[in-house]
Design a protein around this nucleic acid. Sequence first.
DNA 1: CGCGTATGAATGAATGGTCATTCATTTTTA
DNA 2: TAAAAATGAATGACCATTCATTCATACGCG
Lengths: 200, 200
Amino acid sequence: MSRSNAKPFVSDKREAILRAAIKVFAGKGYFNSKVADIAKEAGIADGTVYLYFKSKDDILRSFFDRAMSDFISEGKRELAEIEGPEDKLRRIAQLHLERLGADRDLAIVFQVELRGSTKFMEEFSAKGFADYLDIIRATIAEGQKLGVFRIDLKPIIVAKMLYGALDEMVTNWVLSHKSYPLAPMADEVLKVFFGGILTK
Amino acid sequence: MSRSNAKPFVSDKREAILRAAIKVFAGKGYFNSKVADIAKEAGIADGTVYLYFKSKDDILRSFFDRAMSDFISEGKRELAEIEGPEDKLRRIAQLHLERLGADRDLAIVFQVELRGSTKFMEEFSAKGFADYLDIIRATIAEGQKLGVFRIDLKPIIVAKMLYGALDEMVTNWVLSHKSYPLAPMADEVLKVFFGGILTK
DNA sequence: CGCGTATGAATGAATGGTCATTCATTTTTA
DNA sequence: TAAAAATGAATGACCATTCATTCATACGCG
């Protein structure tokens, strides 16, 4: 009876477990994390985890599904309000770095833990990553149609480049022991991406 | 007595174990690979693995150490013969994609398995990756000094971008179920990297 | 109201399976 | 025939998952 009606908060605990799991995974790595560690972090009994998740595997999968679809839907909403492809790419880069730069544990799990096995990688890249990459690709193709971007470039390759560059910024930030703000690097990346590095 | 003097080939078996391990790790992932799997693949007994390696961990570490130092020393040798910073970067990109594109198992372990835990990542990025990134950074700084590259860019960031872009090409190639040659993508990447994507 | 009772949630000790690693023994080499 | 190399069965930890039991909550009834 603690808060209004009891029912809606069934997922409260699921949330708590998910948060605890991210923290634990980020700290010791997925394969080195015990389900008991997650339970302790969440302040519940070991067995309770299995009332909300099918398996340890399922926790990681659930985390990814939610984080990725949140990110994509927020991205689409934001992009809908922007006109030029150039500005769209700028916003994508900013959102990418802002989101991950705002939550180190989330970033660690994304950059490191989710990539630890071909099994996970294939599954995940098939799902959310492909969608994300496709949004970038479509924006580039749009820019080419409008004459803003060079047409002698394959959109999909250019999309992978931008994604790869941003991804590397995040990975470096995650592994670096220094602490600096991640988001501002979006502009540095775009400066090169738009204009190249040659002087001429 | 099989080949000239026996002694020098103590490492023959070490080699064989290493090769077997890469194949096994590439196939099922580091954490899902049993030492017994590696032994079977190498055609030896389980215990024999421990005559050549301290632990399962040590196998992955040894693999990385050798692959990375081989790559870096070969790279340095090649680069010494090249003059302009622009051509140097071109060669770096080509070597990067040629080497990984020539050995899928090696590529899988590099792109996926070595990144599966912060523990490994921190250790590895501290070692070889930092050296590699620094070669790229130095080349870019050199180009700036010579007036070939824009000076309003931070070399380290530009280096991470190039590395990140190449890395993403490799990861996509590894995870893709289609089979296409990786090396030619170096030129596509450099086209953008040098010239940017804007038409102007 | 207050009390018994049914229902679902939570617990955590026990289970079962999995492997990395060891080492007494055997095989190969010189 | 001694030393070195290789073997593979046995050991001991480790941990995901299960499930018999306990606990909390809400409801019905006198």
